Each structure stands twice: as structure tokens, then as C-alpha cells.
Amino acid sequence: MSGEIPPAQPPPVPDPQQQHVHPVPWWRWRRNPLRRRTDQLQAWIALGLLLAVPLVGAAAMIVIGEAAYRHYRATSEHQAKSRHHTTAVLLHDAPQHLEPGSDEARATRYPAEVRYTDPTGRIRTGRTDVPPGLPADSTVRVWVGEEGKITEPPMTSQEIRSRSMGWSALALLSVAVTGVTAYGATILILRRRNFAAWDAQWAQTAPRWTRSP
């Protein structure tokens, strides 16, 4: 039909045997008549992110890791000053393990009710984990917080290092994900721009190929 512009068709796939195919990662850097400005821009953005992500990630690991280490170290010191290590008495027999004497039994702990004295001298009762089979009136060591309740022991140096390393790894992962997301968004924007330019150029070229009846 006269005046109707046919839909744009994708370019034919070149035959690898008829031309020398350059490696995919480098074709945007080589001069050729089919290379667009957006192709070169995409290559520069990819190179920039490839260089920036490791550097920013390493810096983030150091900064976040040191900040987390200082935070957990201060928390551990506060816990050591504010928590009291005292002796508690078991009020009831602890449950027996199904396999007494086994490695699993030695590692297993059961919650049991105990009686203890808080830092103010008040007698309290609470629950803590004890080995299986421990008889009533046995003594166990517990940590008591500022409010007089049984709590966890202060963080150890190993726990401080482990948590700090976890935050460092999370910082590196966040930078990597941000870089990948930025690159994906850039490709999407450039691809839409290419399609729009392609449609505009085809609208100018197609009428010259259209034949009137």
C-alpha cells in the first residue's frame, strides 16, 4: 500500500565464515561504520565500573569493617562492666539425654530453672541452659545483667571479629550489587535510545523502498 511504512526488521545475522569476528568484549572499541555513540558510551561505562567497583568495594570493606569492630568492641567492654558473673543453684533435675555420654549429649544444653542472687543482693529465679542429667541443687555459673535478669555472656574477641568481617563482606556485596544494577540500568536506557533512533531512521528510509501500485 502506498504511504504505509513497513515495520523495521532486525539486521541479518552475519556469517562468521565470511568475515573476521572480533572478540565480543572489544568490538565496541574498534572503529567500524556500524558502531554507534551509545556503543562506545556503554563500553566506557563498563570499563569505569569494572575499575571502580573493586576500589570502592575495598574501601567500603575497610571503613565499614573498622566501624563495626569499634562498635562491637565498645559493646563488649560495656557488657563486661555491666554484667555480673555469679553462681546459680538448679531447682529441678535437668532432663536426661537419649544417649548419655555421647558427643551429642556433651554438646546439648537444656533450659532449666535456677535460683541466684543479683548484684543488689536480691534472690531471684530464672532460666538458663544446663548440661543434660544435672541433678537439682547443682551449681552453675550464669551472667546477670543490670536489671538483674540472666543474660548472655559478653561478646568474645572471636565474636567481635566474626561480626566485623560479616559487615565487611556485606559492604563489598552491596557495592558489587550497586555496580551491576547501575550497569543494567545503563544498558536498558541506551537500548531504548537505540531503538528510538532506529525507528526514526527507518521512518526516513522506508518510504524510498515503498513502491506505489
Rank of each mutant, 00 (worst) to 15 (best):
M1C: 08
S2A: 14
E4N: 07
I5H: 01
P6H: 02
P7S: 09
A8E: 11
Q9T: 14
P14K: 01
D15L: 04
P16F: 06
H22I: 14
P23S: 11
V24A: 15
W29R: 10
R30M: 14
R31H: 13
P33T: 08
R37I: 15
R37S: 14
Q42E: 13
I45E: 01
L47H: 04
A52D: 07
M61L: 10
A68C: 02
Y72E: 06
H78M: 15
H85A: 14
A88W: 00
L90F: 00
L91N: 04
P95Q: 04
Q96S: 12
H97G: 04
L98V: 12
G101Q: 06
R106L: 05
T108L: 05
T108M: 04
R109F: 05
Y110V: 11
Y110M: 08
A112M: 02
E113C: 01
Y116G: 06
G121Y: 04
I123K: 11
G126N: 05
P131N: 02
D137M: 11
D137E: 15
T139N: 00
T139Y: 07
V140Q: 09
G145W: 00
E152S: 09
P153V: 02
P153N: 01
P154N: 00
S157R: 14
Q158F: 10
R161G: 01
S162R: 14
S164Y: 02
S164L: 03
M165F: 14
G166T: 09
W167K: 13
S168R: 06
L170E: 07
A171H: 02
L172Q: 08
L173P: 02
S174M: 10
V180Q: 11
A182H: 02
Y183V: 08
Y183W: 12
L188Q: 09
R191W: 09
R192W: 02
R193E: 14
A197F: 00
W198N: 06
W202G: 03
A203S: 11
Q204T: 13
T205C: 05
A206C: 08
A206W: 00
A206P: 08
T210C: 09
R211N: 05
P213Q: 03
